[in-house]
Design a protein around this nucleic acid. Sequence first.
DNA 1: CTGAAAGCGCTTACAG
DNA 2: CTGAAAGCGCTTACAG
Lengths: 355, 355
Amino acid sequence: MKNQKEAGRAARPGRKAVAAARGEGPVTLAMVARAAGVSPSTVSRILNGTAVVAKEKRDAVDAAIDSLGFVPNPVARGLAGGRTLSIGVLTQSIDSPFYGGALGGIEDTLTAAGYSPLFVSGHWSAAHEARSIEVLRSRRVDGIIVLTGRLSDAALTALATSLPVVVTGRKLKAPGLFSLSFDNFEGGRLATHHLLQLGHRRIAFITGDTRHPDAKERLRGYRAALEAAGVAHDAALVLPGDYTEQSGQVAVERLLDSGAPFSAIFAANDQMAFGAALGLHRRRLRVPQDVSLVGFDDVAGALFSIPPLSTVHHPVVELGQIAARAMLALLAGETPALALPAPRFIVRESTRALA
Amino acid sequence: MKNQKEAGRAARPGRKAVAAARGEGPVTLAMVARAAGVSPSTVSRILNGTAVVAKEKRDAVDAAIDSLGFVPNPVARGLAGGRTLSIGVLTQSIDSPFYGGALGGIEDTLTAAGYSPLFVSGHWSAAHEARSIEVLRSRRVDGIIVLTGRLSDAALTALATSLPVVVTGRKLKAPGLFSLSFDNFEGGRLATHHLLQLGHRRIAFITGDTRHPDAKERLRGYRAALEAAGVAHDAALVLPGDYTEQSGQVAVERLLDSGAPFSAIFAANDQMAFGAALGLHRRRLRVPQDVSLVGFDDVAGALFSIPPLSTVHHPVVELGQIAARAMLALLAGETPALALPAPRFIVRESTRALA
DNA sequence: CTGAAAGCGCTTACAG
DNA sequence: CTGAAAGCGCTTACAG
């Protein structure tokens, strides 16, 4: 009997000894409870604000937490309570120059609220995205933020029935789902309008992947601005692109080879604008002296390109922050009342009035 | 008695009903065991390859797993087994143009091995990094990959006593720790050598934050190359920078204002080279006609800068992949035998022979 | 307001 | 080779 008890008690010190040897101090909630002279339930309730607890017990627990340096184990919390305090974030590529800012905004906002983001990549494929979502679910994230991507609206709506979902880049209404979309149409209009104001009439447009709604909207904005200005639309001036620098460069080569006259280029994103700039440079065409160039997104590099690129500012950091705040609201059972700032056109040095 | 039993049994269907209503199917290991007619222990052992199991039971379990679509819950696994199959990754900024590639390499390699990366940012502050490491530990990651940063060697060595650690950007030997360092000295030498070969003698150097070992090494490489070529070192040609575009631009302005003659600039990273290029552009100096310019790192933007930047290729994607593979090796109890590729200088269009 | 107890979904000695 | 049992560190009805 005594031996058994000894053995039983020995288990704890043994564990602690091991932990100590590893330079670690895995203080558990039970230890805090013991130190404070209350039950684990009470400690848990104080931790979670789940119930009102007598002030003196609360103080004793707080003191114990401090002195022991207790940090709740999110893993155990996840198993027991069903909350892991982690939020899945589906991005297309963890190192996208475009989404980088959004990831940072998400991380900061979530971390400040005690949540951890779990980033997974979709690699621009619906299949990959679906797999990544599965990883997220198997990790029991409390919610999922989807940065655009190719998942169908139906898939997202279905997902939202089991988890709060925040999605960017589309307009979707469904229970448990909040969507956030940037006004790409207005952005496209703004950029084109800027060029028109400078006297340009022959304005080429390099499209993004037109399977994406945002690419479509930007194109629509371009057309609407031309139309509003009474400029006839010329199909020869619309070149296909896919949002990569490479495609921007190729588009310019084609445009030049086609012989169609133009005095300005509007690339549907900055990366293609950079490629276009290089394409022009190769043909000894100067920006903005010979050709005015505008981009879209205002990625970090736009400020230091040569010349600094005039572009539509896409508030990606805010996008991330707002997406995260919307998720936090959803988690709190609230209905997010948040929206993205309107597009602004940033005039830098890549455009000039038509002589 | 009957009622109790009913109530007891009702719990399961209730839960399942809820789950079903949410469109979810949280199949548990216990369900698999029941379906296969074995004990949970056996299922667990098959899952983990922890013991040899009779072929027929194994087949039955595999079949049950397939038909039920069972996915083990990593959260429960983490609690029970002490392994979470997640690896913490401490980066400085989730949206760094430089580290982006490394994060992608880490993600791909880890994901393929069934692990999930948990990215946290240090924001270039040791205090922040320490806090982020705590988040990682509280989440019970199985190991931590540290991408440079400001943590002391001692802190990392201590960390490695409780967890496998892989650190980049320094040379450190300690139990449970593997370090991976790029030959920045050689890279600095290579870039300078390229300029020397083109006939340049007055080569300015824009440093990184010299508190970082890599920045120091690059500077050392620059000096060594000059010395080897018998070129006197001129302190007026060494300008302080901090790895930002902004600082590169400022450095060039200072250099120009100082009146010190020079025909080439070696910026300790590409971002500063971009800033320097803009600074030169502002003063109507052309690259490479008037000034040759080289960078370091070969970030994505270098290929499409104008002109495309000659630079030292820093294999960041491989860095990430190798760091992840080293972690996997450490986790398997092996000693990683991995190293980074040697630096290569990439000649593009920002340099030319001195007339 | 607060405890005792059961349970979250696994893993792992402990015994066959 | 395989089960029954205990336990990982929490949370949450259930009873006071």
